[in-house]
């Protein structure tokens, strides 16, 4: 059983990396988006196998369900693809790839020597052992608040390391609304700002129409001319 889940982790890891490569290599954005979706679902599997159940569920709902669908929707709405097909890659960017290889090497060298290669410790199964002289939640599955701090079972931080609690909605939620309540509130303000910003950016005032004559699409060949003229303007502005 243990071996099977570990093997599954490697399989999901391979799928996640393959999905990521697909995003970078696929020429059409919609294929890239589907690859990324695939990668994210694999990551959700990894999270579930790492006992982060809430995160796994949210990965499926938020990333795969909401964010990626928005991206796919925008790709379809704008009907992209064919226009950029012949110019998928930047030549200048390809020259940076050795740099990335070096980065991967350094990350592996630097951080793995610190992190170590130990497997994750097994989660506790039985009752919680309290430190001497301090009351705590001993049984995390009986629906009774043993230490009388108004936190029952998994919602009590005493139960954080127990198998039936680790990574559950209750346990993460108790953390989120406990010591991290201020970041939590700030995150909600950020979301609100995001909503307002998105509406302001895309919404049109009543009566305002789509520009009737779109500016001419700039072909790759004409870029040099356009950039040349704007460069001249910029130099003037700088002086």
């Amino acid at each position: 059983m243990m071996d099977f889940s570990v093997a599954l982790l490697y399989v999901f890891s391979g799928m996640a990396v393959a999905g990521g490569l697909g995003l970078v290599l696929c020429k059409h954005p919609i294929h890239g988006a589907i690859s990324l979706l695939f990668s994210m679902l694999s990551l959700a599997g990894i999270y579930a196998l790492l006992d982060a159940h809430l995160i796994a569920a949210l990965q499926v709902i938020i990333y795969a369900g909401a964010i990626m669908i928005l991206v796919v929707y925008i790709i379809m709405l704008l009907d992209l693809g064919s226009a950029d097909a012949q110019t998928v890659y930047r030549k200048a960017g390809l020259m940076g790839l050795p740099l990335l290889a070096l980065l991967l090497l350094l990350l592996g060298q630097g951080m793995i020597s610190v992190a170590g290669d130990a497997a994750a410790p097994p989660l506790a199964q039985g009752p919680v052992v309290c430190p001497p002289g301090v009351a705590c939640e001993t049984d995390c599955g009986d629906g009774v608040d043993q230490d009388g701090d108004n936190m029952t079972d998994c919602a009590d931080t005493d139960c954080a390391g127990v198998a039936i609690c680790f990574g559950t909605v209750e346990a993460v939620g108790a953390n989120l609304l406990g010591p991290f309540v201020l970041p939590f509130e700030i995150a909600s303000v950020l979301l609100l700002a995001g909503i307002v910003g998105a509406i302001l950016l895309t919404g049109r005032k009543p009566g305002e129409l789509e520009p009737s004559v779109p500016p001419p699409a700039i072909q790759p060949g004409s870029i040099a001319d356009a950039s040349g003229s704007s460069e001249a303007q910029d130099t003037e502005g700088a002086v």
Partner: peptide, 21 residues
């Protein structure tokens, strides 16, 4: 795995032209 995903993502930012990608 995390580092490889990160580097693949960085490569995408560096080499692709399409802003959605």
């Amino acid at each position: 795995v995390a580092f490889v995903l990160f580097v693949v993502g960085a490569a995408g930012v560096m080499v692709r032209r399409n802003l959605i990608v």
